[in-house]
Design a protein around this nucleic acid. Sequence first.
DNA 1: TCGAATGAGTCAAGCTGCTTTACTCACTGA
DNA 2: TCAGTGAGTAAAGCAGCTTGACTCATTCGA
Lengths: 155, 155
Amino acid sequence: MDSGGAGDGVELTFLLGLGFQLVLAEFTRRLAEVGYADLRPVHGMAFQALKGRGATATELAERLGVTKQAAGQIVDDLERRGYVRREPHPEGGRRKLVVLTAAARDHLAVAGRVLHELEAELAGSADIGALRRELARVVRTLHGEDGLPPLRPVW
Amino acid sequence: MDSGGAGDGVELTFLLGLGFQLVLAEFTRRLAEVGYADLRPVHGMAFQALKGRGATATELAERLGVTKQAAGQIVDDLERRGYVRREPHPEGGRRKLVVLTAAARDHLAVAGRVLHELEAELAGSADIGALRRELARVVRTLHGEDGLPPLRPVW
DNA sequence: TCGAATGAGTCAAGCTGCTTTACTCACTGA
DNA sequence: TCAGTGAGTAAAGCAGCTTGACTCATTCGA
């Protein structure tokens, strides 16, 4: 045993965590290099959740898997920095529609490009199709068929 | 496109995070069920780092990827709850050797069993060998050949 | 032999990102 | 008309780290 390289004899859970951590760290590093050092992964997740028609802070909270207060704080932060705007909600009430600004859409485009470049590079040394397929099976086994749960920013 | 189930059309990074989060959550849930609701993943990592001859708090800090103060706080906590002891270091100095108690060794045994049961169950619906192999390749590509970095408990 | 440097440990304060609690306010509907 | 509902928000609390500053045993060099 211990015949090969990194990963042999290591717990699967540990390997999953390391894979995620290293890919995310490399992604974050590259984004910082092109000027997005001020945005954490959760901000990108928020952009994903808001793209299209936008959402209320409470809807955002559900999609991110946090409390509405936490979502409100994230929106405060992003609004202060010009990535989102709060608009009156078309359906009225106390609701406000949080929508992306052009700055956020730029970030989404750049992040998508960086992500796919990184994946293409990894495809040089790993079978990304197989990795993706087996990960999807694991996720489906543990969470069922109905959509995907929020990816929480903590253990 | 979008031909199958969960995971198609989802970013690889997201899928990695989700896989890790779901496997870790299920592992933690099962451990809590058998009486270890008081131990977080980082405690299991500390036990792994300390098993064998033990280590100083500073060595533990390096292996966990945190400051020595944080490691000291973790050791305080685990000592208070009877999972580790501080012994005088055989090589003297101000050093103290942190060693596991029987309670921690019991936990390591149970956690190992639970982890392998979980992996065996997942093997019913996913090719764990392939998953492990491709993850190891990704890790090696991003971190190189020399060992494995610490798995940090935060994004 | 003395004294500065080294390195482990620890105390205290600070910070971040979340939660909990508690409220305000716009609308709804019996 | 007025209690109920649901979105938003204000404030405090908390966990788990970090940073900064210190003590003290040991070492090593002038």
